[in-house]
Amino acid sequence: MGGHNAALHGAGPTGPGTKPGTDHLVTDGHGHPGEGVYIRIAIILAIVTAIEVAIYYVDALRPLLVPTLLVLSIAKFVVVVGYFMHLKFDDSRYRLMFIAGLVVVFSVIGALIAMFWTDQYYVPQEALETLQQAREAEAEAAE
């Protein structure tokens, strides 16, 4: 029975094409867009930023401001990640990993903030006064 003891491996750098241990051919994601695409995307990003700042100053758009800003910034986020960080063109497993992380973070942080925002803050005046009195009494006792 041969098994692992008969197993040998190539010693030097391995040839191109297959990746050891994988079930399929993998290319390391090199369908990068060219400089022209990058510049166009940067122009779009700049315009979107200008729109964000512009609508901030338009009073008539106030009721729509927050949702619009959120949508625009998410769009910017997606474009930078997709094109500048090449996630759109890269190995799908990078995409999976990053998006899974974002989902966890978004859910956890969203739930956390929601629990605070549904609560109302008030100044705990009485307790502060009690603390203050106790502190003064302590100072007097020390003297």
Partner: peptide
């Protein structure tokens, strides 16, 4: 397939 972007970087199990 002979195409591989980084010949200096040896292959890994995932290709990443």
């Amino acid at each position: 397939v002979e195409e591989h972007g980084h010949s200096e970087h040896p292959p890994t199990s995932t290709g990443m």
